[in-house]
Amino acid sequence: MSGTLQAVVAIFAIVALMYIGNLVRTKRLELKYALVWFAVGTMLLIFDLAPGILQWLTNLLGIALPINMLFFLGFGFVLLIILTQTVVISNLTRKTKRLTQEVALLHRRIDNIKSREEETKEIIESIQKPDVGIAYYVDSEEP
């Protein structure tokens, strides 16, 4: 790997890490989900600055070129991230469903309470009407 490429990759990794850091700082990305992205950036930086590690790993697994090792690792990370996201989506779906159900049931309850309230009002009004023939005092003071 040429020195220039090494420098470019290093800069790219650092900028990416800073960008992710900023996303977390401004609350646009949840720290919990940022961890895996930090891991990707950091690993890229390590492999870039110390190519020996990647070379060693490549030899260990019997892969011909270090770049293939890098692709392999990248692919593994992407799969991991997608899986994490599917878990998160399932979780969100479950929560949205619960909230939807809860809202619907509360609506029903409010409607029931409202109609009961109206019924009560009607009864009170009918009692208050003088032609019903019942004396009814509102706000009557205690004797």
Binding site: T96, Q101, L105, R108
Partner: peptide, 20 residues
């Protein structure tokens, strides 16, 4: 009637009934 504010699918609808 209980009106689900978002279309949630048959399973969620029936479950709402059981919650009720």
């Amino acid at each position: 009637v209980v009106n689900l504010p978002i279309n949630s699918g048959i399973g969620a609808a029936v479950q709402t009934g059981y919650m009720y």
